[in-house]
Design a protein around this nucleic acid. Sequence first.
DNA 1: GTAAGTATTGCAACTTATTTGCAGCATATT
DNA 2: AATATGCTGCAAATAAGTTGCAATACTTAC
Lengths: 139, 139
Amino acid sequence: MDYNEAKSTLSARKVKPTANRIIIYKVLSEATHPVSLTDLEIAIGTIDKASIFRTLTMFADHDLVHAFMDGSKSMKYELCVAGVHTIGDMHAHFYCEKCLKTYCLEDVRVPQANLPEGFTAHDVNYVVKGICPDCQGKL
Amino acid sequence: MDYNEAKSTLSARKVKPTANRIIIYKVLSEATHPVSLTDLEIAIGTIDKASIFRTLTMFADHDLVHAFMDGSKSMKYELCVAGVHTIGDMHAHFYCEKCLKTYCLEDVRVPQANLPEGFTAHDVNYVVKGICPDCQGKL
DNA sequence: GTAAGTATTGCAACTTATTTGCAGCATATT
DNA sequence: AATATGCTGCAAATAAGTTGCAATACTTAC
């Protein structure tokens, strides 16, 4: 995704496309794995972590990104597919215990569980932990 | 669970039943919700948090407790059902966004997703976020 | 076009939740 | 009892996320 595409996506979603936001959105769009705040801070290098944090929080409020916890200690972020952000469309994530990378299993829908009477669901987090293909067989 | 029962459970699981460990195990067994390190520190009052931390970590290694992340910032711990700690037996958790309490949905099995080729699962974390029965209708 | 108002940003400081180092005490072993 | 191993508390170090605030930048109303 180039600079302009990021910019128009932000505008389309009613988010003022500031320079920082465009960069952050672009970097997110190019990430191959869900990333943490620190990952972004390092990848970008020029934007303060507080600004990235506030931007991510705001993106999440606008359903531009999906924030979730994998098994690690840090929150992970990834772009939402355009407009899609309902529980039924959530996908699963996989956390590799060896390389500590989080995979986004786009094609694995989160299976639905039946909640007991009285509980109302807003969000579901489904994370499988284990060993990823790259790490199979490694020490 | 009383002191002696906790003690023999620890022994049965090859964990030396020190005074601290017995207390921690007992408190865990009496908790109605999964608890955090801080919850335990406060509930017990007399044991240092580093000791509780090391004990919990060790209990987790021995599959005496199950450690998992709910949507909050702190790790939650709960006793494992005796000996049962396979993926197929994992149950779901529910995190209330209003009262911030975590519920252990004992009866809700974690639905299984099919992982892509090459991934091996060791553990699954299934947390539903929303509003709990107690908080329905509250402001 | 310019002043007033609002939004965005960076810096630094703070909070929270662990996590580790280490020295002292306890327990087990020889 | 002397040694070795393990357990504990205290304090300090991390790590990640958050907030306050002053400086900029951007908008909008004259």
